[in-house]
Amino acid sequence: MSEKVQKIVEIADDELILGWRDSEWTGIAPSLEEDVAFSSIAQNEIGHARALYELAARELGTDADTLAFDRDPGEYLSAPLVEERRMDWAHTIARHFLYETADEIRLAALKDSDDAEVAGLAAKMDREEQYHRLHARMWRDRLQDEPRFVDALEELWPAAVAVLPEELRPQMSERLQLDLPSNSLLRGFERGSHSEELRPLLDEMTMVRRSVPGATW
C-alpha cells in the first residue's frame, strides 16, 4: 500500500467507525431534534468513508464495500478514539468535538495535497464538516460547565491528539489551549493499536454480510 493510499484508508476507517458509532444514537438521542441531527452527521461520515474507499479501491484493484467490511480487524487503520463505545451524551459530544477539531486540521493539510483528486475530495468533505463543527461547538458551549462533560474531554484528550500525525499535533494543542499529553499518556491510543471494542463492533457490522458468503445484498 502506497503512502498516499495508506493515508486515505486511515481517514476512511476513522470516518467509517465513527459514523458507525454515531449511528448507534439513531432513534435514542436525548431529543427528537438531536436524533435527526446526529443521524445526518452519521450519514455524512459514512458517505465520506465511502468516497475515500472508492479512491483507495481504484489503486488497490478492489471496491469500497470490500475495503469497508472484508478486512481482518488488525488491518483497520482507525484511531482508538473512534472505536470506543461511549453510550452517554457527555462522552459522545466530547469525542465529536475533539474529533471534528482534529479532522479540520487534518483536512486543511490534505486540501494542499499535490494530488488533485485527494485535494478535491478533502475540500468537498470539508464543506460538509463545517456543519459538524458548528454542531459540535454549539454543544461544547452548552455543556462546557457540566462536570461530566469536562471530565469526558479530559479523559479523551490523549486519544484525540493521537488521531493526528505528530507534525500536526501542536496545532491541536494551540487550537484548544491544552498541553500535549506525554508519550506515556498516549500509549495505547496511537494509530496502529486498537481499542478492545473494535472487534465486537466489526463482528456486529459484518454479521449479515458474513452469514451468506459471496452473496449480494
Binding site: 449511528s23 459514512i46 474507499y53 464495500d65 469497508a68 457490522m205 454479521m207 449479515v208 445484498w217
Partner: peptide, 9 residues
C-alpha cells in the same frame, strides 16, 4: 438494531 449490521455501505 439493523443499522449496525447493514451488509453494504
Amino acid at each position: 438494531e439493523w443499522i449496525l449490521r447493514a451488509p453494504t455501505l
